[in-house]
Design a protein around this nucleic acid. Structure first.
Lengths: 104, 104
DNA sequence: TTTAGTACCTTGCATAACAAGATACTGTGT
DNA sequence: ACACAGTATCTTGTTATGCAAGGTACTAAA
């Protein structure tokens, strides 16, 4: 998997997941990994960035299966960021595909 | 324009342009810029990389409108690289769009 | 001669994904 | 009791690549 392609888009994927319901980091890694290979070393720093930017809030919850989980909750500005990023992505990949599709 | 989105895909866009016909750097910048903002400081180092990897060959040609132009020609392995990258991109954005499309 | 357009290039910076490892809890098998 | 797999958090250092900001130099028009 070309890791360059993922630059920027992983943030949108994470925000998209959190839009549905609160998740903890390990869960996010596993969900995205079903489609796109991703490592924990990518997600945890990303989550910290999202929190620093105010796009998510966090809370801890006990787990019966291991150590406590840190859940992430999408804030109002996180929803805005999601919408903004989604729009940018839609425009971007549409333009790329037009460029790629122009007849040879 | 989110510059992170462009990571990796610009190589594919350049190879795609060169698949049709030989181009010089300044021309490539202008062609891509019609759809996606891009700077010369991105393209020239990229072209050097592509040449270093054997994906393109170069030749100089006079111009009546300014200094000599350095044309880039796609090699056989450049065509292979294009096909490989195109396939990766198709799979990647399909998966991203599936993830983004899952109902909330 | 000054400016705009064409055309090449480099340096240093910022961003973000990754590999590799550290830490620690729970449950299962021996 | 001990080892191991699975769960769950995190950090450090490396790598890739796009960009801003500059430099050089040619042509042609004002």
């Amino acid at each position: 998997m070309n890791s360059q392609f993922k630059k920027g888009i992983l943030e949108l994927l994470v925000l998209n997941i959190l839009k549905r319901n609160d998740c903890y980091g390990y869960e996010i890694v596993n969900r995205i990994s079903e489609s796109i290979s991703i490592s924990e070393g990518t997600i945890y720093p990303l989550m910290r960035r999202l929190k620093g930017d105010g796009y998510v809030t966090t809370y801890l919850a006990e787990s019966t299966e291991g150590p406590p989980r840190k859940y992430y909750h999408l804030s109002a500005s996180g929803i805005e960021e999601h919408n903004r990023l989604k729009e940018e992505w839609d425009i971007f990949f549409e333009r790329v595909n037009i460029l790629l599709g122009e007849e040879s």
